[in-house]
């Protein structure tokens, strides 16, 4: 059982972090950040999978390197780039490398990234990828042999299966229905899209009370007022309230980082009673994680 699964099962409020692999093979900086600022402070570290469809080094390789450093990874898997053969094969590869936590995601469309002419795959979706994981755990794959029986595996993997949801979606009910399907398909934990409005989050959490899996609220560290405005404009389902934008705008440049971590810490404190953990997406500012944890009064 992974540390993340154990901690969530214990009922403790669990924190996860996130790093993004580099565009190139210079993995030193992201591994250093993880070792320096995340190790020992978070239950696990998500490794993004070709995030925003911008081509990068792979998530599985970095997950493996994290394990070598004694850090538990969450292997993010998107459905955009691989068909069901490759997805299942990579799940087996990940399990063979000791990776247990897997986060099933649809994946941003290729037109959002830097290879807009690439073929979007989506052979599976975030629901059927979870079903594929369950099939592998049951010792079979998605294919059938000539007699119509599921193919058998030689050596069976075990995963801790996660998924995402967007509490601030303009169609929250559609998100709830999809989350119900993800839970039915085997999801064991949820890490949400970024949330900045505890009221919205409270309403959403009430609407998913019937879905009995732990939810970790997503916090993307807001580094500046322009970034917050950009998120409002360009990231669907993410709403940064005006007061937060104003606080960032009013802060002097040298205080900006302190204000950013203050905001993140406060948000976690406010939403802690509503959920089972927080997922910190610091976008390169991993050095702020210890500060955020302290300000959230979790240390």
């Amino acid at each position: 059982m992974s540390q993340l699964q154990r901690q969530l099962a214990s009922g403790a409020f669990v924190v996860t972090g996130e790093i993004g692999p580099p565009k190139g093979i210079n993995v030193g900086p992201c591994l250093h950040e993880a070792e320096q600022y995340l190790k020992g402070r978070v239950a696990a570290v998500n490794v993004t999978d070709i995030q925003t469809a911008v081509m990068r080094l792979g998530s599985m390789a970095v997950c493996h390197m994290l394990i070598d450093l004694g850090i538990e990874p969450v292997f993010q898997m998107v459905c955009r780039d691989r068909n069901r053969l490759a997805l299942q094969s990579d799940l087996l590869s990940a399990a063979a490398l000791g990776i247990e936590n897997v986060l099933s995601l649809t994946g941003d469309h290729v037109v959002m990234g830097d290879h807009q002419d690439a073929k979007p795959v989506y052979d599976l979706d975030s629901v059927s990828l979870l079903q594929a994981m369950c099939a592998l755990e049951a010792g079979t794959d998605m294919g059938l042999d000539t007699k119509g029986n599921p193919n058998k595996l030689d050596g069976v993997p075990k995963f801790f299966k996660g998924c995402c949801t967007t509490p601030g979606s303009p169609t929250p009910e559609a998100q709830v229905i999809k989350l119900e399907k993800k839970a039915a398909a085997g999801a064991q934990f949820v890490q949400t899209q970024a949330v900045y409005d505890p009221k919205t989050f409270e309403t959403f959490m009430k609407s998913i009370r019937h879905i009995k899996i732990p939810v970790m609220v997503g916090i993307v560290l807001l580094k500046s007022a322009p970034m917050a405005k950009y998120m409002n404009r360009s990231v669907p389902g993410v709403v940064v309230p005006d007061e937060i934008i104003q606080r960032l705008a009013d802060s002097a440049k040298e205080d900006r980082q302190k204000v950013s971590t203050d905001i993140a810490g406060e948000l976690i404190r406010q939403m802690k009673p509503m959920c089972q953990g927080a997922h910190l997406m610091t976008l390169g500012w991993d050095h702020c994680v210890p500060d955020i944890i302290e300000k959230a009064e979790l240390s």
Binding site: R80, T106, D108, H109, V111, M112, P120, Y122, D125, S126, V127, S128, C164, T165, T166, S169, P170, T171, A174, Q175, I177, K178, K181, Q193, P236, G237
Partner: peptide, 22 residues
């Protein structure tokens, strides 16, 4: 659906009901 998803929406629905791709 830009991603031809069959099991429901992804997180890319904008406030005005448009898709994040355009």
């Amino acid at each position: 659906c830009a991603k031809s998803l069959v099991n429901g929406q992804c997180g890319g629905t904008c406030d005005d009901g448009s898709c994040e791709v355009s």
